[in-house]
Each structure stands twice: as C-alpha cells, then as structure tokens.
Design a protein around this nucleic acid. Structure first.
Length: 287
DNA sequence: CACGGATCCTGATGGC
DNA sequence: TGCCATCAGGATCCGT
C-alpha cells in the first residue's frame, strides 16, 4: 500500500505526539517480514526522541538505538491514547507514556526492526543502497522546520541522469527499484511518467537530459501534492489518526484503464511490467 | 552486475 | 452461496 507520500503522511500524523514519550511495553503478534532483532523487554524504559523517514522506512529514533518500520503492502500505523483490544492483524504494539503505537498489517510484508544505531549493520542492511530522497528540501517537518531526511544528497537532476544512464530496464521499473530514487511506488511511478510525458516502457538509459529533468520535476510535483492530499486511499490507507487520503481523486492515469485521459480524452491503457500494472496515456506519452 | 521472475501473505472481487 | 482464479500500494532472493 504505502509509498513515500503515505509513509510521510503517517510520520507527520504522530511525530508530535510521540516525541519525548517513554516506552512502557512492547508486544509482537505474528511474525512480520523480519524478526524484531532484540527482546521486546530491552526497549522498555527507552524514550522516543523523534520519527524520521528514509525512503519508505520510518525511523523511530530512541535515546539508544532506533526502530525501522516498513509498512509493506498492507500496513498502517495508529497512534492513540486508548486503543481497543488488538485484532488478528495487529502485529506490533508499543505502549508509551504518550499513547500506543500499533501496526496493523494483514499481509505481513511489513517489518519492525531494531537497530542499535543508524550506521549499524542492521540498519545498513535495510537502508544501505537506497537512492536519492526525492522530496529532500521540499517537505519540512511541521515542528522543527527541518527537512524530513538527513544524510543523503538531495534529488539532483545531474545525479538522476547519471543513475538512469546505466540502466537498460524500462524507466517505470527503474523508478520502482529504489536504488536511483526512493519512495516512488506503483501509483506515483505511473503518475510521474504521465506528467513528464514519458512512455513507461522507454529504457531508462534512453532518457535525454531534458526529459530526465522533466521526470525529476514530475516526481517531486506528484509526491509533494500527494503528501498535501494526505496520501492515496485506494482501499484502506489511513494515517496514524485514522484519517484517509484523497490523492486518488486527482490521479491522471492510475487505475483509470479505458477511461478518457483528463488531458486529451484518449482511453488510458494498462500494461504489465514486472508483474505490476502500469497505466499511461498512449497519446500524451508517445515515447 | 543487471535483469526478469518467483516469492512471502491475506483479503477483496468477479466469473461461473 | 460456494469455489476458484486473479489482483493488490513492496522488496528480496535466485537463476541466467
């Protein structure tokens, strides 16, 4: 489910409340994608400093170590003072002095992993080869005014072009791979290519510098707008306050197979790339 | 090394 | 109503 906008919207929806909280207890449900990597008891007594984001990972920073949270395809977080008894798909729950953080993830492709530090082997294994942060310098933290992400370089057109040049796979799939640019999932990959007027099947290495610049701008534009709209709620996404997103109402191509293109009225087409659906307008995205 | 495909898991949906 | 096939916002692993 969640791509960068949904993860960022989730982060913004509970970072203020959880900051400064003390961990009172932690409980796990069924196994997630990876084991937690520590005993739940080890987390008790630590305090939550803040929550940052790297790609589609949330980094819950503790006074000692951090929790890396990934929502996978079907995960969502809730943070509240009081929650009903956990359900069948609630697989991680952390009770703090400020409220309870709970991960609901029916498909269990998500994960919560403890790492002793941001540069530990555990963290590097998950974050080590992530690409550039597309919204760096665009989405600022509502409290501190600082950008959500830290140490990687910003999303630079020149670096983007260099990254694409070495890839012969289709541009759509290179966007999804996350090693050139992070956070672009199946919805926003199609949307960005539409805004840039680029055919999803074009080899990444075939993008000219000007077209790379257009895609760079399109990715930023679509992700930033999606964050403003609270993300996309296709089926069941909601932020940590339980609120749905509305970007899907503004999608130009995603899930609009056969419907008229909002620009030229040509029917939107769907193809399969790497077992995933891709949507595009054959008229607006000729190559 | 880069690519395509299989894979993890559950739930919703549509055809018969 | 039941059964089966297909599809779903992700990302890793494996064979070529």
């Amino acid at each position: 489910m969640p791509e960068l906008p949904e993860v960022e919207v989730t982060r913004l929806s509970f970072v203020r409340q959880i900051a400064g909280a003390e961990v009172l207890s932690v409980r796990m449900g069924k196994p997630l994608r990876w084991p937690l990597g520590c005993e739940v008891g080890e987390l008790v007594g630590r305090s939550v400093l803040t929550v940052r984001r790297r790609g589609k990972y949330l980094l819950i920073e503790l006074d000692e170590g951090l929790l890396l949270v990934h929502l996978g395809m079907s995960g969502s977080l809730v943070f509240a003072r009081h929650l009903a008894a956990p359900g069948a798909h609630d697989h991680f729950e952390m009770v703090t002095s400020h409220g309870t953080l709970r991960l609901n993830d029916p498909r269990r492709f998500g994960a919560v992993v403890f790492a002793p530090g941001e540069h530990s082997a555990q963290a590097t294994k998950l974050l080590g080869r992530l690409g550039m942060e597309p919204l760096q310098d665009v989405v600022a933290d509502g409290v501190t005014g600082q950008v959500a992400e830290g140490q990687t370089g910003g999303f630079d057109v020149k670096a983007f072009h260099i990254g694409l040049k070495s890839r012969n796979a289709a541009i759509k799939q290179v966007q999804l791979a996350g090693d050139v640019v992070v956070g672009v999932g199946n919805i926003y990959a199609s949307e960005a290519l539409f805004l840039a007027g680029i055919r999803p099947t074009l080899r990444a290495s075939a993008l000219s510098r000007p077209r790379t610049a257009r895609l760079h701008a399109a990715i930023r534009q679509v992700l930033a707008l999606a964050v403003e709209r609270g993300g996309s709620t296709l089926r069941d996404f909601s932020n940590a306050q339980g609120e749905a997103g509305h970007f899907q109402l503004e999608a130009m191509v995603y899930a609009r197979t056969g419907m008229a293109c909002k620009v030229c009225a040509t029917p939107i087409r769907m193809i399969r790339q790497g077992q995933r659906s891709t949507f595009f307008c054959p008229q607006c995205q000729k190559r």
